[in-house]
């Protein structure tokens, strides 16, 4: 089951709205706003497809998100399935 640690780069003025939107997104756990422009989050999903979908949704659909940058990707189970 893939898990990814990500940094979400945001427009500072829209941080609260973005937090609210992230909280409604299934599989996303946030770990705070840092340096006014970064939200640390963890994506959990059943498949890497869902990770991709989550990332795409957040970067394209949530206003004020400038980019989603993975930093850690754990996919042991999926590798075994491949």
């Amino acid at each position: 089951m893939p898990i990814s640690g990500v940094v979400i780069l945001i427009e500072p003025k829209k941080s609260q709205k973005i937090f609210n939107a992230l909280k409604k997104t299934e599989g996303v756990t946030t770990y705070g706003l840092h340096k006014d422009i970064y939200i640390v989050a963890v994506f959990e999903a059943k498949t890497t497809k869902e990770l991709e979908t989550m990332s795409g949704h957040i970067s394209k659909e949530i206003d004020g998100v400038l980019g989603v940058y993975p930093t850690y990707l754990h996919f042991e189970d999926e590798t075994e399935e491949a």
Partner: peptide
């Protein structure tokens, strides 16, 4: 999960 969050935080210079 904790590792993933901490690694993400570390990338922006934050110790979570």
């Amino acid at each position: 999960k904790a590792t993933a969050a901490s690694t993400a935080a570390a990338a922006i210079g934050v110790s979570l």
